[in-house]
Amino acid sequence: MSKSRIKLGAQGEDLAVDYLKKKGLTIRVRNYRKKTGEIDIIAQDGQCLVFIEVKTRKSLRFGQPYESVTLTKQAQISRVALDYITRNKLHDQPIRFDVISILLQSGGDTDINHLPNCFEAVL
């Protein structure tokens, strides 16, 4: 992955964290990595554990950012979430999978689209 894409992703994740905190969520972990994949943000929303994928783009040339969260990506996120739940003994806690879609427009405008409970676990 190019340095510019890594920088864009990090910028999007920072914006997503700020957005989530303003919405009252508590950030538990950023960039939870395992061999099988990564979850961008793991947060707590009341009693619910939230696994969040952040997608950031500078244009709509390839569609909305959230459109890149394919069934394959959902399965990867689900497997990593299961690892996190197991390691932290959180089996009794309700969970959900969110996507935050960020479009950084020219002129400095930012469009943040939060899709809560966007998909079910895919294993």
Rank of each mutant, 00 (worst) to 15 (best):
H114Q: 04
V122A: 06
L49C: 08
V29D: 10
T56W: 14
Q44L: 11
R5W: 11
R33N: 09
D40Q: 13
I77K: 00
G24T: 03
I6V: 12
D111F: 09
D83Q: 08
F119Q: 08
G12V: 14
T86Y: 07
K22D: 15
E38Q: 15
Y84K: 02
S59R: 10
D45M: 06
S2Q: 07
K34T: 15
K73R: 13
L71C: 07
L123A: 04
S101E: 10
I85A: 01
L8S: 00
V99C: 09
R33M: 05
F51M: 05
I42E: 05
Q64E: 13
R87W: 02
R87T: 04
Q76H: 04
K34G: 09
E13T: 11
V50Y: 02
D109T: 11
G9M: 05
S4V: 06
L49Q: 07
Y19L: 11
R5Y: 09
T86K: 10
F119L: 09
R57M: 09
I52Q: 01
V54F: 05
R28H: 06
I6S: 12
D109K: 15
G37W: 13
Q93T: 12
F119T: 06
H114R: 06
K3P: 00
L82Q: 11
Q93V: 10
S4W: 08
L49Y: 06
G9E: 13
S2C: 03
K73A: 07
E67A: 13
R79F: 01
